[in-house]
Write a protein that binds this DNA or RNA. Structure first.
Lengths: 214, 214
DNA sequence: CCTTGCGAAACGAACGTTCGTTCAGATAAC
DNA sequence: GTTATCTGAACGAACGTTCGTTTCGCAAGG
């Protein structure tokens, strides 16, 4: 009934979504840490593991980050920022109709999680190890992103285009389709990311009780 | 767009699903470990933390388990066993119609995850730290459970009662509704576990394109 | 053209702490 | 008096982190 994890993303190379981080050692550290934290967890990956992956000595890392926790905090921050920005942009590009807005949201949400599975895993599983002051900004963004979807659903319901028995549970179901992607999905020619995104759009509309579909 | 974690299940007391474990220190260890592993992760919770929670000295644990890893392995094994047994029993209790079988599967799946959130989290997040020989039996059970759902969907599709654009993606969506529950759901009078299970049944049927519903 | 000086980056070694685990002996129950 | 359980002390290993030193690219000065 559940979906099987390939081997927790050990294989694929980690890619940062944001181009805001300039090339250089700092970026290399973030990418290697992303890969390690995603595959072994924050506590399961040591500073020495990270240094080895980078062909550096452990002490060299401290010229770029004040602590191991701050590396994670930066990844978590970037992940939430990219996610929220992606959703916001998608919503802006859609029209005013709830159905189109929902299509845009689900498409963006799915593409982000399918294209950056490691970041999704780290953001969602390891944010708990951060002290509250480092986690707070990310949690605030998360709340905002969640509200975006719920607002679209409520508006569609008010207009009579959506019919849902329970908005919050339905929103959770839609959001979850994307969130769990890193644990089972791998792009193949038979099921590429764009096809997957359209499938999720279709499924989300079904959950919202939208009848006529192209 | 995502759902916010309360504080990773720190609050609630952990409950083992299986009555197969007799009362006694061994059971107390498993329950305390379940709570700790769920809230801090396997690597984030030390043997000393576990011993403190049990008001024991660390060395006392080794009279009951050969290693920390074996405690986790036992939890993972129990979790997968309870899950698979729950699904199997649900299917047996349902008739031969795919719709009824699906109702039963989703209901059981949701109830298990809603009633045992800590076990769900540990089983799904920490299985990766186990060496392959300890994880293999659980992974085999997981594959079987996953196949149960897919088989029902395929049968329903063959009979014309379900209409899905992509069986695997749809199965993943259904399964995922339950899997993510521990991260956002908490039972309240307004939304108790049985109501939630019925909502998930309704949503799953929508995903499968079932039209007429009571 | 060569030398000098400088700042950033990485090294090498070590720190104090915590980790999982072991084991001989005390304790309690039947 | 045997058996099951727990204690107290200790083990080596691994942890995150610090710090003084070394390396290196490059611009300025003679």
């Amino acid at each position: 009934m559940s979906s099987l994890p390939p081997s927790r993303l050990r294989a694929r190379k980690a890619v940062l979504p944001s181009s805001a981080v300039p090339d250089g050692t700092r970026r290399r550290i973030l990418e290697a840490a992303l890969q390690l934290f995603a595959s072994r967890g924050f506590h399961g990956a040591s500073i020495r593991d990270l240094a080895t992956a980078l062909e550096l000595r452990p002490s060299a890392l401290y010229a770029h980050f004040p602590s191991k926790e701050h590396v994670l905090a930066e990844l978590v921050r970037m992940g939430h920022e990219a996610h929220h920005e992606g959703l916001r942009a998608a919503l802006l590009g859609a029209g005013s109709e709830p159905t189109e807005q929902l299509r845009a949201l689900v498409r963006a949400h799915t593409l982000l999680h399918a294209n950056h599975p490691q970041l999704a895993v780290v953001v969602n599983e390891e944010i708990h190890v951060l002290p509250p002051e480092l986690a707070a900004p990310a949690l605030a963004l998360r709340e905002q992103s969640s509200a975006l979807l719920l607002a679209v659903i409520e508006r569609g319901r008010a207009q009579g285009v959506f019919s849902v028995p329970h908005a919050v549970v339905t929103a959770a179901a839609i959001s979850t389709m994307g969130l769990r992607l890193p644990y089972w999905y791998e792009p193949t020619p038979a099921l590429d990311v764009d096809t997957l995104a359209e499938l999720h759009v279709e499924l989300a509309l079904r959950l919202l009780g939208v009848q006529g579909r192209p």
